[in-house]
Amino acid sequence: MVFTRSYTSNQLPFHRAEALRYFGYPQSAIPTPTVRSLFDECVEEGILACSYQVCYTELDVKINSPCDMDLGFIKANSRALFTNLQGCEKVIAFAATVGLGVDRLLARYGAISADKAYAVQAIGAERIETLCNVFNREMAEKYRQKGYYARPRFSCGYGDFSIEHQRAFISYLDCERKIGLTVNDSLLLSPSKSVTALIGLGKSPAKNQTEICENCNQKSCEYQRQNEENLNDEKDRS
């Protein structure tokens, strides 16, 4: 059975530093006062536009080798996913979205104010990340009590785990009906601020697993997180 959860903004603390990072300000940079006031204006509006929903289900999996992984609803062939899921007996497959409101706001500002559109997209990116993080933490805690250790979430399109699997996630989780999430012919998700992913569950803790950002091969990424502390940084940097 596919379950749904909805969240309110109160349950999802806003990580200002993260949003600023998506806005193009690395931690070392301090936005000017005019940039800051524009950003603040958009934060309020952006958060108000969100409607947070997650749908998910639990599956038994067989992780034999990189080219032999049975995830219940897909057969996967991926070295990166194998590394992530090694030792797992179950996975949670989930889809999360912050809703169409953010896309509407983006379209509106796209027409009148490119600077605000850019700010809203950064805020939307932070919102969906935070939603996933909170949901993941809840799942990790829930399954910890059943004796499982959760892996960092893993999405199709990461490494060599084909983005083509996006369709299987959407249809298997009945995403359109459950949370209003659809995928287009180019495998893009609508609403755009949405994520599908797997959370591996194993009876022993993962070895040498780091968070997604640090684990990524894309070394020249301008959005790369500097260190773990940034994640918890909720205070204004200036």
């Binding site: 936005p31 000017t32 005019t34 940039v35 524009l38 104010s113 490119a114 600077d115 850019y118």
Partner: peptide, 11 residues
């Protein structure tokens, strides 16, 4: 100068 500033000037 970061992108947001460039955009604000452009606007």
């Amino acid at each position: 100068v970061f992108l947001p500033q460039l955009l604000m000037s452009a606007e």
